Simulated assay, not measured.
Amino acid sequence: MASATTFYDFKVADKKGAEVSLADYKGKVVLIVNTASKCGFTPQYAGLEKLWKTVREKYPDDFVILGFPCNQFGGQEPGTNEEIQEFCQLNYGVTFPIMAKIDVNGDNASPLFEWLKNEKPGLLGLKRVKWNFEKFLVGKDGRVKGRWASTTKPESLEATILEELAK
């Protein structure tokens, strides 16, 4: 979607494959994470869930985390959408939305992730997602405000998210 100017210009598939317009999140701060169930960073699901609950206590209607499972890094997300949902719920009690499995790099990359990477390149201007659990923060205006590597613990983003919510 070359003409996309904000996060709200995209549509993605939810866990059941139904189309969701990201315009539904207009005016919210959104943390986007590419996830995987069999990765060394998988325990970050617990940190994401904690962050989700903590921030929503203060801003119940203004913050959302969207997880996008991806199997492009070491085949660490081999399951079906249903299996992924079950894993997240049973192992980490995840209550934030986990969307349909996607590609974040390459010829079949999600247009949303292509846009995110162009808006906020990584270290040294690299535009590809390097690994599972890379994070992007979208502000209330639909623009990318931050990007963090897989090694960044979700809980460490709380102050930045609260700052964005206060704007």
Results as ranks from 00 to 15, higher is better:
residue 65 I to Y: 05
residue 63 F to R: 10
residue 56 R to I: 03
residue 166 A to E: 14
residue 126 L to R: 10
residue 97 P to E: 06
residue 50 K to E: 09
residue 106 G to A: 04
residue 47 G to E: 13
residue 141 D to R: 03
residue 41 F to K: 02
residue 144 V to P: 03
residue 142 G to M: 02
residue 55 V to M: 05
residue 148 W to K: 14
residue 91 N to R: 08
residue 59 Y to D: 03
residue 45 Y to Q: 10
residue 81 N to W: 07
residue 36 A to Q: 09
residue 51 L to N: 05
residue 99 M to C: 00
residue 133 F to S: 12
residue 36 A to E: 08
residue 13 A to P: 00
residue 64 V to G: 01
residue 73 F to D: 09
residue 15 K to Y: 12
residue 24 D to I: 04
residue 48 L to F: 02
residue 72 Q to R: 00
residue 95 T to G: 04
residue 133 F to G: 07
residue 28 K to N: 09
residue 38 K to I: 00
residue 9 D to V: 04
residue 121 P to A: 05
residue 74 G to Y: 03
residue 62 D to L: 07
residue 7 F to C: 11
residue 28 K to E: 10
residue 76 Q to N: 07
residue 162 L to Y: 02
residue 103 D to M: 01
residue 61 D to M: 02
residue 39 C to H: 15
residue 164 E to F: 05
residue 89 Q to S: 10
residue 52 W to L: 06
residue 162 L to I: 03
residue 33 V to G: 15
residue 162 L to D: 09
residue 167 K to F: 00
residue 143 R to E: 13
residue 13 A to H: 03
residue 156 S to A: 15
residue 115 W to S: 06
residue 111 P to V: 08
residue 154 P to F: 04
residue 57 E to V: 13
residue 38 K to V: 00
residue 125 G to S: 00
residue 23 A to W: 03
residue 12 V to C: 07
residue 107 D to P: 10
residue 157 L to M: 07
residue 48 L to T: 08
residue 149 A to L: 15
residue 147 R to F: 09
residue 103 D to E: 11
residue 90 L to C: 04
residue 108 N to K: 15
residue 82 E to R: 14
residue 34 N to W: 10
residue 97 P to N: 09
residue 105 N to H: 11
residue 80 T to S: 15
residue 140 K to Y: 07
residue 100 A to P: 02
residue 17 G to H: 06
residue 18 A to M: 05
residue 121 P to V: 02
residue 36 A to D: 06
residue 11 K to W: 00
residue 113 F to V: 12
residue 62 D to Q: 12
residue 89 Q to C: 00
residue 118 N to D: 14
residue 143 R to L: 13
residue 43 P to R: 10
residue 148 W to M: 08
residue 119 E to S: 14
residue 146 G to Y: 12
residue 104 V to E: 03
residue 132 N to S: 01
residue 26 K to G: 00
